[in-house]
């Protein structure tokens, strides 16, 4: 179903969920849960948004049923650790590439995806100051390196 314009701020989280459907269904589940919660705050009034969110909720409920044996789904604290570890793993990979002067699409995407997953951590409560800084840095780095490569400059 096409994403209504009012829900555009969650489109990258939903794309990350799709990308992880097979690779890591727990990540996919929490990306969709974050998108659901954020989507309801963005716009649950207009008919097309409501329709979209109802479909997303259907998907979440069936995912939850399929994964009812996963601790990461049934226990919030385990889910929190799962997402945080995954986000930081992506951040560390991208940061190592950056420090090694190896600039490429993969590391940009890793920086950006780690920032999206740090957004998703908000599902579990307030972000720590450290994760807020990580998210800001990762998003800035992804944008900066992307723009450098696009204009043919070498990122510093």
């Amino acid at each position: 179903m096409a994403l209504p314009a009012q829900l555009r701020p969650i489109q990258h989280h939903l794309r990350t969920a799709q990308e992880h459907e097979a690779r890591d269904p727990v990540v996919a589940y929490y990306c969709r849960l974050y998108a659901m919660q954020s989507g309801m705050k963005l716009d649950s009034k207009t008919p097309e948004c409501r329709k979209f969110l109802i479909k997303l909720m259907d998907q979440l409920e069936s995912m939850k049923k399929e994964m009812s044996d996963h601790d990461s789904i049934t226990q919030e604290v385990v889910g929190n650790a799962h997402i945080e570890n995954y986000a930081l793993k992506m951040f560390i990979y991208a940061d190592n590439e950056d420090r090694g002067g190896r600039f490429h699409k993969n590391m940009i995407k890793s920086f950006y995806t780690s920032s999206l997953l740090l957004d998703v951590l908000c599902v579990f409560g307030e972000l720590s100051e450290e994760n807020i800084q990580h998210r800001k840095y990762a998003r800035w780095k992804a944008t900066y390196i992307h723009n450098c490569l696009k204009s043919g400059e070498t990122p510093q």
Partner: peptide, 27 residues
């Protein structure tokens, strides 16, 4: 039709909020 539309909308919104709360409760 205006008021009917509005009440359908808010009923669906409430239902979504309840479903979300239920989804999270079982976590």
């Amino acid at each position: 039709t205006g008021s009917v539309g509005t009440s359908v909308a808010s009923a669906e919104q409430d239902e979504l909020s309840n479903r979300l709360a239920k989804l999270r409760d079982q976590m």
